[in-house]
């Protein structure tokens, strides 16, 4: 009688211990995932592996383009997409303003996204980042002038070196002004 009561109590304690252990493990996992997700929004710590699966020869594959840009740092801004196959342009329409984003962050992320986009989508020629107040267009040939052969960047060490360079604010500002065609929208102050 007593032995069985003890077994019941022991099993109950083991069960409760297991429950707490699994909760603990899940919390830890959740934190790791959160830290990774946060790192993905920062150009200098973004993971190349997360975008490699979207490598494609043609920009005509719209879902692939959308998936790619959803895995790039700018993805925490509400937006929608469109594309122009005649000019091989992919357009991202943001719902917010460019000026609200912080100048350095905006420049870094546009540069990084453009490098990633042109490196992974072979026939993509032009990217348009369309905010409510301003619009930035980046061309493949300008990016290639700055970074050389983009395909050669697609390995961990070269990619990481490119990310390191984006830490230098002066360089970023210089390259950004060289590669982007900037348009102010009417009726808006920028």
């Amino acid at each position: 009688m007593k032995t069985r009561d003890r077994i019941i109590i022991a099993l109950g304690i083991i069960g409760i211990f297991f429950v707490f252990a699994t909760i603990q493990i899940r919390n830890k996992q959740y934190q790791v995932e959160k830290a990774y997700a946060q790192a993905q929004q920062e150009v200098t710590s973004h993971d190349l592996q997360s975008i490699l699966p979207y490598k494609n020869k043609y920009m005509g594959n719209a879902p692939n383009n959308i998936n790619l840009f959803s895995h790039l740092p700018l993805s925490d801004y509400p937006r929608n997409y469109s594309q122009n196959p005649d000019t091989f342009t992919f357009e991202i329409h943001f719902e917010g303003t460019a000026s609200g984003m912080g100048k350095n962050r905006l420049q870094k992320e546009i540069l990084y996204s453009s490098v990633a986009g042109f490196a992974l989508i072979d026939n993509l020629q032009s990217l348009k980042y369309d905010f409510t107040d301003q619009c930035f267009t980046v061309r493949r040939k300008d990016i290639e002038k700055q970074y050389g052969d983009l395909k050669a960047l697609l390995n961990e060490s070269s990619w990481h070196a490119m990310q390191e360079k984006l830490k230098k604010t002066g360089d970023v500002e210089r390259i950004f002004t060289e590669v982007t065609l900037r348009q102010k929208k009417e009726g808006m102050s920028g």
């Binding site: 009688m1 069985r4 077994i7 019941i8 099993l11 109950g12 083991i14 069960g15 429950v19 699994t22």
Partner: peptide, 15 residues
């Protein structure tokens, strides 16, 4: 007692 023991055992396994 046996009912509790068997239910608890299954529960512990499922956790």
């Amino acid at each position: 007692q046996w009912m509790l023991i068997s239910l608890l055992s299954v529960w512990v396994i499922t956790i």
